[in-house]
Design a protein around this nucleic acid. Structure first.
Lengths: 123, 123
DNA sequence: GTATATGTAATTAAAACAATTACAGTTTAC
DNA sequence: GTAAACTGTAATTGTTTTAATTACATATAC
């Protein structure tokens, strides 16, 4: 996303992949999430590629995180509790709220950073 | 750790494993980290096991997190940068500080929760 | 119509993680 | 002093997750 902001235009998945040192298909899979979140628009065909739909100043890292993230910051134990153990029976609920708090803390941090800010550190 | 606080004494790895629904060896591996962090003490031999070294009120979730955690909240891309791309060359540094901020946010949250507080939600 | 893109499913490979086995060392109880 | 019940840890195997790659249908520019 920083590369897209930097380029100020279309970039194809091959170039983006080179920048991250991975495979174009990996990029296209991530771009799908970003497109669904309306952060980028993509074009097929010759001279196709992806570009931002909003100004870097208007895209936060939280927007990107929500668009591509899959797993929570703190995962909770999903196994069955041991019925004879009061602690075991309560832990899922207790840890869920702990994990939720951690998630919110990270989200608040990411909400405060925009692509524009990252860009300023390069230019 | 909540189970140890609840029991107010020694618990063996077999019982702890039953509570978490896993294998005793998995517990013993986690306990090693907790022991190195001086959060618990363990005893070998018959009637052995683990118990807390401090009061639940004096153990924060951050203490536990530091003792057993392995991977950062946000991992950064460790691949080689693409020399011809200014963004690629700067991203590692930029993302490191973003990841660091997220880590600090989670740590601040966990620092504010003690085992005692978790215990209160059970008793 | 050919070259160059994306979109996506399917497959393979790699890495991380948990489970299990095995066994040496420790402590208790008798 | 020896059997029983623990911990400590290395080694192995199995499972799950993730990334990489292949394949090909579809779209667009010229």
């Amino acid at each position: 996303m920083t590369a897209l902001a930097f380029s100020e235009g279309l970039m194809d998945s091959r170039t983006l992949a080179a920048s991250v040192n991975t495979n174009p298909v990996v990029i296209r899979r991530l771009v799908r999430g970003l497109r669904q979140a309306k952060l980028v628009e993509t074009y097929a065909g010759k001279h196709g590629g992806a570009q931002l739909r909003r100004k870097p100043r208007e895209i936060s890292l939280l927007d990107i995180y929500d668009a591509v993230q899959r797993r929570p910051v703190i995962a909770i134990n999903e196994r069955k509790a041991w019925k004879h153990c009061a602690v075991s029976c309560h832990m899922k609920g207790i840890m869920s709220s702990v994990a939720d708090g951690a998630e919110q803390a990270v989200r608040a941090h990411l909400r405060g950073i925009t692509l524009k800010q990252l860009l300023r550190q390069i230019c």
